[in-house]
């Protein structure tokens, strides 16, 4: 380096100035609220913003509330449902896409299944609430035309929860399929060549080469879904109604209702801290298993 000591100092000063906005932003809008959230969880906020220390009372209140356990249960049922039932469809779609020889058809199919991933939950909710509407909806009109009774999907307890599982699977199927397809494309062709020489059929090649080679990707997708489970909010908030609320409310909608709607900041913070703890543990596991963040 040709620069002298003072030249270096000047350069570093500039670099620090360049990154300063990011540090300030993260300090103000991530770290400070994080710390504040933990503090609030041990406090009670009175009218006019006065606070007093209450120890672990908020945590005990949360754990003693049956509704808390109900939303934990809902979160696990809905999140777990998405993870388990949503696991195979994208793999099947990716394998199918990989078998298509016609490039144009492949492109169209890929685009079609991916598109719903771009839609917001408001759009998806509006779309499906219309299609599943008791009168005038595509599905119920069909049921009526074959002599069945219309189903009130969004207010039926059994159906409401199933929809909260089914619609995210519908939305993200193509997205995960493309992740799998990218992984399939990177499998060495020589593996298939060798199998072909041994006389393996296309199906056998898929079963014996492609699927085993997808294991690492499956693991990543599984982990991402597991982490995403605790963050589910939009879909529930938008599609719930007074009838289904009890069966579909998840941790984040519960925290929103408590903290923002009812102003119980201490209680909502305590639940957030507990969820955060769970998230950090799960993230640590995910990062260890997937080797993410290793390059530093």
């Amino acid at each position: 380096m040709n620069l002298g000591m003072s030249g270096n100092m000047r350069r570093y000063a500039w670099l620090y100035v360049m990154i300063l906005p990011i540090i300030v932003y993260l300090g103000l809008f991530v770290y400070y609220p994080l710390v504040q959230g933990v503090i609030s969880s041990f406090q009670e906020t009175k009218l006019l913003g006065a606070t007093s220390w209450v120890g672990t009372e908020n945590y005990r209140t949360a754990i003693d509330t049956p509704q808390f356990w109900q939303v934990v249960r809902n979160t696990l049922l809905i999140g777990g449902g998405i993870i388990l039932l949503g696991f195979f469809p994208p793999i099947m779609v990716a394998l199918a896409l990989n078998e298509v020889m016609n490039i144009a058809f492949k492109k169209i199919a890929q685009t079609t299944v991916y598109i719903p991933h771009l839609f917001s939950w408001v759009v998806i909710a509006g779309m499906w609430m219309y299609i599943l509407a008791p009168s005038g909806g595509l599905v119920n009109e069909f049921i009526k035309s074959v002599g069945g009774e219309p189903i009130r999907f969004f207010t039926s307890i059994g159906w409401a929860r199933s929809l909260m599982i089914g619609l995210p699977i519908w939305r993200d199927m193509g997205y995960y399929a493309i992740i799998y397809l990218a992984a399939i494309t990177s499998i060495s062709p020589s593996l298939y060549e060798a199998a072909r020489v041994d006389g393996a059929s296309r199906f056998q090649q898929t079963w014996q080469i492609t699927l085993p080679m997808l294991k690492p990707t499956m693991l990543v997708v599984f982990m991402l879904n597991t982490l995403g489970m605790l963050r589910i909010f939009d879909q529930i908030f938008i599609m719930r109604n007074p009838v289904s609320k009890r069966y579909v409310d998840v941790l984040m909608t519960y925290v929103y209702d408590l903290g923002i709607t009812q102003g119980k900041i201490g209680l909502a913070s305590a639940i957030s801290v507990m969820v955060l703890g769970a998230t950090l543990v799960m993230t640590a596991i995910v990062w260890t298993v997937t080797g993410f963040g290793k390059e530093e």
């Binding site: 103000l28 809008f29 400070y32 605790l230 963050r231 984040m252 903290g259 957030s272 998230t279």
Partner: peptide
Amino acid sequence: RRLLVGFILATMAIPGELIIIPLFVV
């Protein structure tokens, strides 16, 4: 530099949804 990287990357482990209440106050 390593400190900066750590400071920034660590925020990735914190889902934004979990701090909405203090964030609202900010």
